[in-house]
Amino acid sequence: MAASSSSSSSSSYSSVFVIATLLIVLLMNVGPSSAQLTEDYYKKTCPKVFDTVESAVKSAIKKEKRMGASLIRLHFHDCFVQGCDASVLLDDTSSFTGEKTAAPNNNSIRGFNVVDDIKSKVESVCPGVVSCADILAIAARDSVSILGGPEWDVKVGRRDSKTASLAAANSGVIPPPTSTLNNLVNRFQARGLSTKDMVALSGAHTIGQARCSLFRTRIYNETNIDASFARKRQDNCPRTTGSGDNNLASLDVKSPTFFDNAYYKNLIKKKGLLHSDQILYNGGSTDSLIETYSKKPETFNDDFVTAMIKMGDISPLTGSNGEIRKNCRRAN
């Protein structure tokens, strides 16, 4: 009996040990978690980070109103490829090709010099502490609030990637302006964002501009478009490919430099500039949300904030993963 009891005890101990070991292994293999991001991450190590970033963003937007939209776009294009890790900021080198020349980014994303300036100012107050990934998240929030949109507390604690992926950036994870509604829904769901999140985040097109080459087909060939709106856009966007490709038009015809809910009102009037804008109000499943946001700016603001926070939570590098870059354009 004593031997049996000892064996049973040993067996139980072994089982507990195995289970504990498995739990430890599982915990070690869990990917970087957004739960590790906190609003007060820099409270002790860089208490001036938010004021420093906001001041630099204000200065940049004062020089060029369009820059606010560009900074928001950088954060979006960063988070959808590899997660919010500042991979989008890495320059090409002789041995490395980054994401800047990927189809969704080439001649599209901009604002890198502004990010450099913000990073320089942050480094002057807290050297080697604040990541470029966090700077993108904070600058996006500041751009929204400075241009009249909602404010929110940004979760921080992300670290920077040491590499980027041209292939991933080109893989379709960033939905193109020709997207169908299903493609938009699927691309956002693949990043853990709901249809509501997608429609709310699309509202960032209440500011910013697009190149003629991205909306030419819509203004000449599509029928779900206000005729006078199309004619006005055609004045600065010739039908012939290669002619005026880089001519710009505001995404929001009503208040292009103010963050509001006019984007949704435009869609109801069939004045969405991009195909992927107007497809959100075209007899499909998102029509009711568009109508809600067009009538209730507070609801739009609330849902936009929720979606921005969720987007900022996409696969961040935390803990000992990644690094804090000294220069946002290259790994240390």
Rank of each mutant, 00 (worst) to 15 (best):
T206Y: 10
C132S: 15
L214R: 05
N113I: 07
L181S: 02
D134T: 06
I225W: 05
N170D: 07
T195S: 10
D142M: 02
K121E: 14
D134Y: 03
S131L: 10
S124L: 14
R218H: 05
H205E: 15
V156E: 00
N107Y: 14
R159M: 07
G192V: 05
E151K: 14
A168S: 04
R110F: 12
R141C: 14
D197A: 04
G192N: 11
R191L: 09
T101N: 15
T163M: 11
L193P: 07
D116W: 05
R231N: 12
A200R: 05
C132M: 15
S228H: 10
D142I: 05
V115K: 09
S202A: 15
E222W: 12
A140R: 11
L181N: 01
L201N: 02
T195N: 08
K162W: 06
I225N: 01
A210R: 06
L193R: 08
S165F: 08
G172R: 07
Q209R: 13
E123H: 13
T163K: 12
N113R: 12
T163V: 12
P176E: 03
K100C: 10
N170C: 03
K232Y: 11
P104E: 02
S194D: 10
D235T: 09
D134F: 00
V144Q: 00
G172F: 08
V125S: 06
T195M: 08
D153S: 15
S120G: 00
L201Y: 03
E222Y: 10
A230N: 07
A227P: 15
I225K: 04
D153Q: 13
W152A: 07
R191P: 01
S120Y: 03
M198R: 05
I219H: 02
S213Q: 13
D117L: 00
A164Q: 02
F229M: 03
K155E: 13
I135M: 09
A167R: 00
L181F: 06
R187T: 13
N105K: 08
V154W: 11
F229Y: 11
N107G: 05
R218T: 02
G203A: 03
F188I: 04
N113K: 14
G157M: 01
T223Y: 13
N183G: 08
D142Q: 07
V173M: 07
P104M: 00
L181P: 04
E151V: 04
V129L: 13
T163R: 12
A210Y: 02
V129F: 13
G148W: 08
T206N: 15
D116V: 01
L166S: 02
S120Q: 12
Q209F: 09
